[in-house]
Nucleic acid binder design. Sequence first.
DNA 1: CTCCAGGACAAGC
DNA 2: GCTTGTCATGGA
Length: 204
Amino acid sequence: MNLLKIYQKLLKRFGTQNWWPMQRDFSPPEWEICVGAVLTQNTNWGNVELALKNMKEKGLISRDCIKKVSEKKLAEVIRPAGYYNQKAKKLKILASFSGNLTRESLLSLWGLGPETVDSILLYAYGKPYFVVDAYTKRIFTRLGFGNRKSYDEWRKFFESNLPRSVSLYKEFHALIVKLGKENCRKKPVCRGCPLRRECKKSGI
DNA sequence: CTCCAGGACAAGC
DNA sequence: GCTTGTCATGGA
């Protein structure tokens, strides 16, 4: 069973996921995608939308404003996103960043780990980095794709076993998240899961 | 009531 | 290198 086939099954079952700039009508500016990527760290996307709405209403969404406003004030505005003190600091650090947009330079910033950095590079700047999250590891371990441990091992596994396509990377990751929410909550084979057969075959 | 979401970091071993 | 504690709101 190869990755592309799994992608196709998920796409057929769930349809396109309309994450960030895949939408036709509304394509948020790159900076807003970066903000969202930080705010959604270990946080439900619904809460992130509440925070983004607050930021827009208060006129605190642009890079410049975030640089200027106090960390405390920013924290208050993004409160619904949770971890608001940490995230306010992260956003200010990111807003002040002015280096090359490489994976390495972004990773050197406090508060940006591999998943957030890859999300920014992929969804905001269209660079072909495959985003790996907790769902990805759990689901593909269960499917018998090996017991990789580190983030980069998983990322390289996907990147070297898929066509190097930005839109494919975007949609596949979104579909994996969708699958993780719908199914794969519990350990055994889940009812109605589009990967039920593959899951059984792996014997986990 | 409990559980946990589109993680990252620091401290301890 | 790996494990655990911390950060926090809002919806199911």
